[in-house]
Write a protein that binds this DNA or RNA. Structure first.
Length: 419
DNA sequence: TCTGGGGTCCTAGGACCC
DNA sequence: TCTGGGGTCCTAGGACCC
């Protein structure tokens, strides 16, 4: 690819994002070993660790209890997703001043296509430094910026620029930049792939680049071919090939819950399924999605996990249909009393627009849809906890009570308050 | 060490159809 | 009888990312 026709991609990655946001709300955390993600004795993993905590070997995805052992003096903080979303919005806004083609890849990182912005913003290194300053001024947060001719190179270079740095890989220098790096530094190469490559005697990206494309394809299929391209710095295969800023429709929506202690209590499990189904339904309605496939996820005490899916005749976005299916799948795959660690509900296989509606009479489903829309509206207005959402399965609605937190029919004290 | 939650993509087998 | 080949859909599981 010639220099003249090459793209200029920025990858902007916020430094220790969750920790830095928490520090803004509680400045006393600054400089201390901080672990975000939960309390030291809870089930769960580290979402983010401050640089002071990282010195003790703490890193994200590590079990909280392990982090507590490695760094007993660490301050453990529960995550605040609303705060991160708020600051993510501020980040997005800053980026919008630098390019119309901005794509948030997650809450704390984004790609910018800066191709052709030189007249407006100057040379890449210049505009990166201005962006860096503007980000600090607007959000009080540090970021690192990688610049390259592909998303892949930009992303790898931002990782190498951390913390609080800027790194530009010149057009034409991609292979030279990547060659000395470990194969595990390539996005998409995780533990398993890394082990396989090591077993082949491949340690560095340069070793990979020396192999023939068709050898890699033969060994690893489609992925192998993509890998060969990546070793040269190309956005080969899958998501990376999308133009920056191209909006991609969601493919699935899911919610899951890990119990703090395993439970075999059927009522508790059912009410959890109900809550998860409602959360999924709500997001389907918000997004205007109708899902044809519903999936249950069930993780046992020993961490063995199964998923069981079913596709409906007609797509749905309604809580009770989701719940009915999730419950059916659950009871046909659960040995009564067996301790459960996690339950999850997923909707996928979306169909655009509304499903076939009965045009002659307002069907039961349509009435349901209206009721749910009204409930969503109330929740928007008064907050999740302010109202006991009217809900029910067969008869009318039942109110949520303390004993019956999800309004499960036929359970808890008979506080029949049909509305 | 004792393993979250929300996603995407890929593979692979079986059903079913032509 | 003992048996093709391709295409698509469905389901299950796993690698990977932040």
């Amino acid at each position: 690819m010639s220099t003249a026709s090459s793209r200029t991609i920025f990858h902007v990655d916020m430094d220790a994002f969750f920790v830095s946001v928490e520090e803004l709300f509680d400045p006393s955390l600054k400089g201390k070993p901080v672990v975000v993600g939960g309390q030291r004795d809870e089930r769960g993993v580290v979402s983010a660790a401050s640089y002071a905590a990282r010195k003790f070997g703490v890193h994200s995805a590590m079990p909280l209890r392990t982090a507590a052992k490695l760094c007993p003096q660490a301050i453990f903080v529960n995550g605040h997703p609303e705060r991160y979303r708020e600051y993510s919005g501020k980040v997005h806004e800053v980026l919008g001043h630098f390019s119309p083609l901005v794509e948030m890849a997650s809450v704390d990182e984004a790609y910018l296509d800066m191709t052709g912005t030189e007249r407006l913003h100057g040379r890449p290194l210049n505009s990166a430094h201005r962006l860096h300053g503007a980000m600090k001024a607007a959000t009080q947060l540090n970021c690192s910026i990688g610049i390259g001719t592909s998303r892949l190179v930009a992303k790898v270079s931002s990782a190498k620029a951390k913390p609080n740095g800027v790194l530009w890989v010149l057009p034409g220098e991609e292979a030279k930049f990547l060659a000395p790096l470990a194969v595990g530094d390539i996005p998409g190469v995780g533990k398993v792939m890394e082990q396989k490559l090591h077993a082949m005697g491949i340690q560095k990206v340069g070793d990979l680049a020396r192999l023939e494309d068709h050898d890699l394809e033969h060994r690893f299929g489609k992925w192998g071919l993509a890998l060969a391209g990546k070793s040269r710095g190309e956005d080969a295969g899958g998501w990376f090939d999308n133009a920056v800023g191209e909006s991609v429709d969601a493919k699935s929506i899911s919610h899951e819950h890990t119990f703090n202690e395993d439970t075999g209590d059927a009522e508790r499990l059912q009410s959890t399924l109900m809550r998860l189904s409602e959360m999924v339904g709500r997001r389907l309605r918000e997004g205007g999605y109708f899902a044809r496939t519903l999936q249950l996820k069930l993780r046992h005490k020993d961490f063995t996990t199964i998923t069981r899916a079913h596709s409906l005749e007609q797509p749905t976005q309604m809580d009770h249909q989701i719940f009915d299916e999730a419950r059916r799948l659950f009871f046909s795959n659960w040995k009564p009393g067996a301790p459960v660690r996690l339950l999850g509900v997923q909707a996928s296989n979306f169909e655009s627009g509304s499903p076939q509606l009965d045009l002659l009479e307002p069907s039961r489903d349509q009435r349901w849809q209206k009721a749910l829309a009204a409930a969503d509206h109330l929740r928007d207005k008064f907050g999740e906890s302010a109202i006991g959402l009217a809900r029910g399965m067969k008869g009318g609605f039942r109110e949520r009570t303390h004993e019956n937190p999800v309004g499960l029919p036929g359970k808890g004290p008979e506080k029949k308050k049909d509305s």
